[in-house]
Write a protein that binds this DNA or RNA. Sequence first.
DNA 1: GTATCTGCAAATCATTTGCATTCTG
DNA 2: CAGAATGCAAATGATTTGCAGATAC
Lengths: 124, 124
Amino acid sequence: MNYSKQREMMMRILRSTKSHPTAQEIYAEMRKSDPKISLGTVYRNLALLTKNGSVMRIDTNHDSVHYDGCTDPHYHFICDSCGKVYDLDIEPIALDERVEREFDCTVTGHSLIFYGKCSSCKGM
Amino acid sequence: MNYSKQREMMMRILRSTKSHPTAQEIYAEMRKSDPKISLGTVYRNLALLTKNGSVMRIDTNHDSVHYDGCTDPHYHFICDSCGKVYDLDIEPIALDERVEREFDCTVTGHSLIFYGKCSSCKGM
DNA sequence: GTATCTGCAAATCATTTGCATTCTG
DNA sequence: CAGAATGCAAATGATTTGCAGATAC
């Protein structure tokens, strides 16, 4: 994988926020600095960075895919009302090896997402 | 919610398989009995049934959304190679209340998905 | 009879892809 | 120079939606 200015900008954006942006949001953000950026580039790089583990992909029950620049194992809470994705501070659960043994498979990781209403949306 | 023949057929199909079909697969299956079924109806009913809790929606890192007719709390393993969705036999983890407390939110449920290679795809 | 469904077809919208060009090593 | 990466625009494909007719209660 070669260096590219666009990819560097993407990583900078992803690492500097906790907002778990979608591809389109990253695209919009990048355009502020460089209006020439193309959506295709954003998607291609997100795929590359996800594959090589630099970025975490978050599939939700709601809208489109979100991305997280922090790849330390951690979990998310997604608000069913506003759709925001929040980080949770919970120790990783240690079940991967057990699944491997009991299910006779190879486990490379897992995703744990909690759903409900965030503190802002709780009342409504 | 009124009765409908189409919706009943959908539930019958979903309850009778462990294959976690996609909307398109359900559609194909329904067409075998009734070639008049429309995709719109399938999607509309999946949305309804998911909302009222008769069906579980499974968002994966891979292709389109899968559906599970079994709504007893349980978890899934998804093979990164073949994309199949498997049921796991693991006791539900009890973290919802803790998340509510520590994150000041309402938790209605969570989703836990393991990724890796299933026994058939392991060798490759 | 009214609200709820359905089939059909067109519309939406996120994501992917082909291609000619530009950049990196 | 060769392989990678980009911008642009067109294509894809899952999902949604508007509408007029059919069904459930």
